[in-house]
């Protein structure tokens, strides 16, 4: 019996190690294998060879992350870069090792979407010291001076744009509720700052509830159900991502309440469909594809040794029923 147990334990261990390494390994290997045989190369690549670029993404578990990595791969193909995507599963330690691995494998540039604004700094600093240029993508780090450049979109701009749209929808007065991302995350801080800016301009708009819904539909559904229960009049919902916005919509539908405008951020496919159906009022596009295009462009520039700017910001856009047809691909 005992030996059987041991055997099973070993098996379990092996399985979990394999599954972990599968999860951490390059999820979509690029066309040519760099395989590590290439010597550490910190300078410009040989002529004719595609620059080696690593994209370290914090996780691949939501629609935005998948759009980001797919658009990055598409741009790499188009512009001619040898791209490897590494996923950290929201684990800062994993991301740090991945950055180190990218450096040893001879990356010409690293694009990183940091797991944590603080935690990634040390690894980025180390990579820069080793001569590998780092482009911070989408979410900036706490000390932007440590990386070569930042490509992203201003969360504050997006927040402002979203809140402004919601306020316009209720004619500048009334009660709004906010569904926030986890407190302290880059997206939450930036978007909330944008909200505050817009709210200051309209003193007649009151925030009656605001709460962290962990970016998830279930949590947002539960929260909005409970807020409806309080009997407080809710004139609009402003959510920091689309998943949570969709949860809010479900709560209103279940409660039989119609006509409350709900706004989200991210412009994921299902949000776009919901706008088309008139369920979701609007969403703010992070211009993810544009960010990816900029990131690859900057990476190629860097690998050629060209100078780049300190920051590249893509322009967010508001998508609502008026312009939805430009975005729906079907």
């Amino acid at each position: 019996m005992k030996s059987k147990a041991k055997w099973l334990l070993t098996l379990l261990l092996i399985i979990s190690i394999i599954s972990m390494s599968v999860a951490c390994a390059p999820s979509q290997p690029a066309s040519t294998d760099t395989g590590g045989e290439k010597p550490v190369d910190t300078g410009a690549p040989d002529d004719g060879k595609e620059p080696v670029v690593y994209f370290c993404i914090s996780h691949m578990t939501n629609a935005w992350a998948i759009t980001a990595s797919e658009s990055m791969e598409a741009e790499a193909k188009k512009q001619g870069a040898n791209l490897t995507v590494l996923e950290a599963g929201q684990d800062i330690n994993a991301q740090v090792s991945q950055v180190e691995m990218a450096v040893t494998n001879g990356a010409d540039a690293i694009i990183i979407e940091p797991v944590s604004a603080e935690g990634a700094i040390a690894a980025i600093k180390k990579a820069e010291q080793d001569g590998v240029r780092v482009i911070v993508y989408n979410q900036n780090i706490a000390d932007p001076s440590q990386a070569t450049t930042f490509v992203g979109v201003s969360n504050a701009d997006m927040g402002y744009m979203e809140m402004k749209a919601a306020i316009d929808a209720i004619d500048g007065k009334g009660n709004v509720v906010l569904l926030l991302g986890p407190m302290g995350s880059e997206g939450q801080i930036g978007r909330s700052a944008g909200y505050d800016k817009a709210l200051k301009e309209y003193p007649d708009v009151n925030v009656v509830f605001q709460e962290d819904a962990q970016w998830t539909t279930e949590e947002a559904l539960k929260l909005v159900e409970n807020w409806i229960s309080t009997g407080t009049e809710i004139n609009a919902v402003v959510s920091q991502n689309d998943n949570m916005a969709l949860g809010a919509i479900k709560a209103f539908e279940d409660a039989g309440i119609e006509g409350v405008p709900v706004y989200g951020v991210d412009a994921v496919d299902d949000a776009l469909k919901a706008i088309k159906k008139g369920r979701l009022t609007g969403t703010v596009d992070q211009a993810t594809a544009e960010q990816s295009r900029l990131a690859i462009e900057v990476a190629i520039k860097l690998s050629k040794g060209e100078a780049v700017e300190k920051e590249y910001l893509a322009e967010p856009t508001l998508i609502d029923i008026n312009n939805i047809d430009n975005y729906l691909t079907e």
């Binding site: 979990s16 599968v22 691949m60 939501n62 629609a63 299902d270």
Partner: peptide, 22 residues
């Protein structure tokens, strides 16, 4: 604990990591 990780992994694989709506 082992199956927790395995099953979660399967959920990611089946969904391609995305939430499924509709």
């Amino acid at each position: 604990l082992g199956t927790q990780s395995i099953v979660r992994g399967l959920a990611y694989i089946l969904s391609g990591g995305r939430p499924i709506f509709g």
